[in-house]
Design a protein around this nucleic acid. Structure first.
Lengths: 140, 140
DNA sequence: ATCATTGCAAACACTTTGCATACGC
DNA sequence: GCGTATGCAAAGTGTTTGCAATGAT
C-alpha cells in the first residue's frame, strides 16, 4: 500500500484511501475496465464509494498522464493504465478488449502522415474490431 | 435526385424521401456530421423530420456498408460516407475532423499485428488527436 | 388492405454538476 | 479551523424503444 501512496505522491496527487484503491485496482486489472466495473468490484470493499468519486479520480489520473481514456464501444469510457503506445482489439462478440503490440516504425510512419498535412499530433488511438481468439475457438 | 434513388435501390434500400435527403446530405458533407448536425441542417428543408428517422436511416446505411460510424470524441456518433480505409485527425481546439490518407502497407502491417495474436480483424479505426493546421496558424 | 416508414414521447444509459457532509493536516 | 475530497441527488446529453399515425403500392 505504501508504494501506491508514493506513486501517487510522485505524480502530485494527494493519496486518499479511495484514490489508492482505484489506482491499485487499475494496476491489477488490465481489462480496460469501465466506471461501472470499477464501482461494482470496489464497492464491496468500500461500501460508501460513489461513482462520482470514481469519475473524479479517473479524470485526475488522466490529467496527470497516469492512465488513458479510451472510447472504444458504445457510450462507455474505458480506462487503460498502460500509457505506452499500443493498439486495442475489441471483440464484437464477447466485448473483451485486448492490447495489441504495434510496430514502432509503423506508428511513427502513420503519425507522420498526419503531421505532413500540417497538424500537430499529440495522441494516436488505433482500434481493431472483430472476433477474438477465444470466440473463434468456441465456434467449432 | 434520380441518381440518389438509384444508388439506394442498388444497395437494396427503399428510397424514401427522407432517406434520399439524408444520403444526399452525407454525400455533399465530408465533415463527419453528428446526428444533431444532420437534423439541424435538414429540418429547414424537411420540417417534420425527426431524429428517430435519422438514427434509423444511418443505422440502415451502416448495415448496408454505405457509411461508417465513428466514435471519435465525447459521446457523439459521427458518420462517414467515405468507407475506404483512412484515418481521422480530431482537433482538440476547434473540434474539426480531417481525413488522413494512410500508407496501405502500413495498414496491412498493423492489421497483421492483431491477426497474428489469433483474432479475426474486420475493422480498423485510426484516430489522431492534436491541434489542426488552421488552429496552429491562428496562434501566431 | 397491407406493409414499411415516419416521428413523437418516454425510457435508457452514461456522465457531469451542485452542494452539503466528512476528512486530514 | 480550513481547504480538500467525498458522495448523494438532480440535471444533462446522446441514443434507443414503444407505438400510433402516415404513406406507398
Amino acid at each position: 500500500m505504501d508504494n501506491l501512496k508514493e506513486a501517487l505522491k510522485r505524480k502530485g496527487i494527494n493519496p486518499s484511501y479511495q484514490r489508492m484503491k482505484i489506482f491499485e485496482y487499475l494496476q491489477g486489472n488490465k481489462s480496460h475496465p469501465t466506471v461501472d466495473m470499477i464501482y461494482k468490484d470496489l464497492s464491496s470493499e468500500i461500501p460508501t464509494l460513489s461513482k462520482t468519486t470514481i469519475y473524479n479520480t479517473l479524470k485526475l489520473f488522466a490529467e496527470k498522464g497516469m492512465i488513458n481514456c479510451l472510447l472504444i464501444e458504445g457510450n462507455e469510457l474505458r480506462f487503460d493504465p498502460n500509457t505506452s503506445p499500443h493498439g486495442h482489439f475489441f471483440c464484437v462478440k464477447c466485448g473483451a478488449i485486448y492490447d495489441v503490440q504495434l510496430d514502432e516504425d509503423c506508428i511513427e510512419k502513420i503519425k507522420k502522415a498526419s503531421s505532413n498535412e500540417g497538424h500537430r499530433v499529440s495522441e494516436l488511438q488505433i482500434t481493431f474490431r472483430g472476433i477474438c481468439k477465444n470466440c473463434l475457438e468456441k465456434l467449432h
